[in-house]
Computed example of a mutant assay.
Amino acid sequence: MDTLLTQLPALLGVLVGTLGTILATSLADRARWRRSQSVRWDERRLDAYVAFAHALKESHAVALRMTADLRPGSYSHPIDRDEGLARLAESDGRRTIVWENLLLLGDEPTVVAAANWRDAIWQVERLARGIVDASQDISEMLTRVNEARDVYYRAARSSLGVRGGSVEQSAALRQALLSRPSATPDGRMAADDG
């Protein structure tokens, strides 16, 4: 019995050490698994953000080409109305699919910013489709599109933890617009998206 009592502190030390090792390993594995899951979802979130931006830019580019004749001095290459409507229909299908991914994976500020950008582009599309008349101020519409895009990218970058300063384009596009030599017949400057 004396031998057991003298060895008891050593046995307790081994037991405590073993339990500590098991606990530390378990906590480390759990932290590694959480990091792995975070990276996995961040990659998918990035893919959803990029796919949505591409789909919107595709729709917007077609709408710009369809409205090129409304913007003297536009850099957009005009497109036949029937071809433009067909392309808008195709891009609308793609945009709908990537929107669902964005809703599933995006955080709230990014989804709200995406919806605002989409709605701004819809206004230009409505003009291209002839749903609203050409008396609408297209320069103002395009400014809203550019500003909404900046808000979307700011929200997406924040969601993904991307650092590196501002990548906003609307101010530069507005400045480039003001420096163009051509203006619309009513004195407003022609506008294009960057």
Score class of each variant (00 low, 15 high):
79 I>G: 01
50 V>F: 14
143 T>H: 09
174 R>M: 13
135 S>Q: 10
180 R>T: 07
3 T>A: 13
24 A>H: 05
185 P>C: 04
106 G>L: 00
154 R>C: 05
185 P>M: 04
29 D>I: 13
152 Y>C: 01
91 S>R: 05
145 V>T: 05
133 D>E: 08
55 A>M: 01
183 A>T: 13
147 E>Y: 02
41 W>A: 07
42 D>W: 03
10 A>Y: 13
57 K>G: 12
180 R>M: 05
65 R>C: 15
75 Y>S: 15
164 G>R: 01
52 F>W: 06
75 Y>A: 15
84 G>C: 03
124 V>K: 02
112 V>N: 06
175 Q>S: 10
108 E>S: 11
162 V>T: 11
82 D>N: 10
99 W>L: 04
19 L>Q: 13
132 V>P: 04
71 R>M: 15
181 P>N: 06
181 P>I: 02
25 T>N: 11
138 I>P: 05
154 R>P: 00
69 D>W: 13
92 D>S: 10
4 L>A: 12
70 L>M: 08
58 E>S: 14
114 A>K: 00
33 W>K: 14
44 R>A: 12
10 A>F: 10
122 W>V: 06
143 T>V: 07
194 G>W: 14
14 V>C: 06
166 S>Q: 07
151 V>R: 08
36 S>T: 09
145 V>I: 06
86 A>R: 09
140 E>Q: 14
6 T>M: 10
167 V>A: 09
73 G>E: 04
177 L>Q: 12
144 R>E: 07
123 Q>S: 11
178 L>R: 12
43 E>C: 10
76 S>F: 05
10 A>K: 09
63 A>W: 00
39 V>H: 07
89 A>E: 14
48 A>R: 03
186 D>S: 12
29 D>S: 14
53 A>D: 10
44 R>S: 12
114 A>G: 00
21 T>M: 15
135 S>M: 06
92 D>K: 07
169 Q>V: 09
152 Y>H: 02
137 D>A: 12
97 I>G: 00
20 G>N: 06
54 H>Q: 10
91 S>N: 06
50 V>Y: 15
150 D>K: 03
111 V>H: 02
79 I>P: 02
